[in-house]
Simulated scan of single mutants.
Amino acid sequence: MTTIDINEANVYVGTYKKYNEGSLFGKWLNLSDYTDKEEFYKACTELHSDENDPEFMFQDYENIPKGLIDESWLSENVFEVLQALSDLSGNDQEAFLIWCNNGHADLSNGDIYDLISDFENAYVAHYDSEEDFARELIGERDDLNDFAKQYFDYEAYARDLFCGSYWSEDGHVFYN
């Protein structure tokens, strides 16, 4: 997964009228320049002041998580979500977006801080492999001596772990 830079969340704003007339006129607007959705839409209106009641068309966007923007729609809580995500460390931010993109949360709905709390309960950590995660779990067990651990089948154990209790993507491990 490509890491996104929340501070560089940009939207190319045109209008449907201009697009239908064959013009792609618009401008890249950086969401960090605005405090809320109302201020952002005011800037969009000023950009397209040559139209009465412009119908904005978000023709392209960068560094905005899935579910917060579409061609003609910007989530009500996009600024709150972007602020909350900027407070997460880079590794946790990447893991959070993976967790959301795997159907565990819808960023456009619900309280972002509740979603982050749910994520923190589900997220284990980042590992080089699923087998490394299995090795750590076995390493923490007091009921297995070093002799037993050296003959332990970590690959098979990892396979079993990730068939039920856990899932992973790009090295990030989560509870199911």
Rank of each mutant, 00 (worst) to 15 (best):
S72V: 07
Y127H: 03
A95V: 07
K66H: 14
G67I: 10
T2N: 12
N7L: 08
Q150M: 11
M57A: 11
W99I: 05
Y151P: 03
E71Q: 15
S72G: 13
E80P: 11
E120G: 09
E39N: 06
F152R: 04
I112D: 05
V173S: 11
F25N: 12
D146R: 04
Y154S: 00
N52E: 15
C44A: 04
G14K: 05
K27R: 11
S108N: 09
Q59S: 15
L24H: 14
D111I: 06
R135K: 15
A84M: 13
A122D: 15
R135I: 00
D87W: 06
Y113A: 02
G90R: 13
L88G: 06
K17C: 04
T15G: 05
A148I: 01
G103C: 09
D111W: 10
E140G: 14
M1E: 10
G90V: 11
F119Q: 15
P65W: 07
D153H: 05
F119S: 12
E80C: 12
C44I: 02
Q93W: 09
E94Q: 15
N52L: 12
E8W: 11
N145D: 11
K37V: 00
G103N: 12
R159F: 03
R159H: 08
I98Q: 00
V81H: 12
D92V: 06
Y61W: 15
A134D: 02
Q150D: 09
N52M: 09
E120Q: 15
E80M: 12
L31M: 06
F79N: 03
C44Q: 09
I116E: 08
N145G: 04
F133K: 06
D92N: 13
D36F: 00
K37M: 11
G103V: 09
D114E: 14
E80I: 13
D146K: 07
D128S: 01
N20H: 04
G14W: 04
C100V: 13
N91D: 14
Y175A: 14
A84G: 13
